[in-house]
Simulated assay, not measured.
Amino acid sequence: MPDPISPFLYSCFPVGSRKLAAHANPVTAVLVGRSGPVRLEREGQRVEGDILLVRPGIVHAVAFAERGADVLYLNGLGFPFDTLLGRGLTGAPAYLALDAMRGDESAMAELRDRLTPAACAPPPAVAAAVQAIHADPMWRMPQSELASRLGMERTQALRAFKAATGQSFRAFKLWSALQYATQQMAEGALVRTAAMDAGFADTAHLSRVFHRHFGLTPSAAIAGLSVN
């Protein structure tokens, strides 16, 4: 789904399994347990709650109650708390996260504003590049194209992109393609079809990236879609 106040997409995916293997989500995420609390674990550290905001880039495992959880990925949003793994959401932010997961764009806008009120929209040229990447999942925009769009030398363009999005140019393109493939599979596409349509080399390539970012395989994720 398009974010109502930025060029980024945000995604909500169901997780029907009871646990996720060690992985590092590439962007800030919200985990909502369906029938009990969610637990994040890393090297003896633990964070538990019904609704958790998860720090990106930190390898962690996740345990859920019986019916799994739903995950909202907040692309382009920095993590606003000084905690290693994550932090529970309560009160208005928790209700806003739940409404955003149901597709309420005004709730998404308010949630983003509450979590990072000082956040600035990316420069127009970066926003246009982000939209172009989202619009064509099979295309991996080259660095030279980004530099041309931003009117900068290549290294400067890469730095400007990361400063505006929170991800390296390469990581952002891969995550955008993975989001598209995951959405296709959630809608019933075969793994190999989703891989091809999103520009992955083959099914094995998609499976490796999927496990690294989500902590489970595509087949396990598809199997869990029936858990409500």
Score class of each variant (00 low, 15 high):
Leu31Cys: 03
Pro7Ser: 05
Phe161Asp: 00
Asp82Asn: 12
Phe214Trp: 15
Pro218Ile: 01
Ala194Thr: 09
Tyr73Met: 12
Arg102Gln: 14
Gly215Glu: 11
Ala204Trp: 08
Ala186Asp: 11
Pro4Met: 04
Thr203Met: 13
Ser17Leu: 12
Phe8Tyr: 15
Gly49Val: 15
Ala125Ile: 02
Gly76Asn: 10
Phe161Lys: 01
Leu72Gly: 03
Asp104Thr: 08
Leu98His: 10
Thr116Ser: 15
Pro37Gln: 14
Phe64Asp: 03
Ala163Glu: 14
Met101Phe: 06
Met101Ile: 13
Glu145Pro: 01
Pro93Glu: 06
Asp136Trp: 05
Thr193Lys: 05
Ala189Asn: 07
Leu72His: 06
Arg112Ser: 15
Leu9Trp: 05
Arg170Glu: 03
Ala198Phe: 12
Leu115Asn: 07
Ile51Thr: 15
Arg154Met: 12
Ala132Gln: 11
Arg34Ala: 02
Gly91Lys: 03
Met185Phe: 06
Ser106Asp: 11
Leu77Lys: 07
Gly86Lys: 08
Ala132Tyr: 02
Pro7His: 05
Ala121Gly: 07
Ser11Phe: 07
Leu52Met: 11
Gln167Gly: 00
Leu52Val: 12
Pro218Tyr: 00
Val27Tyr: 00
Arg154Lys: 15
Pro14Glu: 09
Gly36Ser: 04
Leu146Pro: 08
Leu85Met: 07
Glu110Trp: 07
Ala21Gln: 09
Leu89Ala: 07
Leu84Val: 14
Pro117Cys: 13
Leu31Ser: 03
Pro122Glu: 04
Phe81Cys: 05
Leu115His: 13
Lys162His: 09
Ala119Ser: 11
Pro124Ile: 01
Gly91Ile: 02
Ala163Pro: 01
Gln45Val: 02
Leu206Gln: 11
Tyr73Arg: 14
Val30Asn: 03
His60Asn: 11
His134Met: 04
Ala164Asp: 00
Glu105Arg: 10
Glu105Gly: 01
Ala198Pro: 09
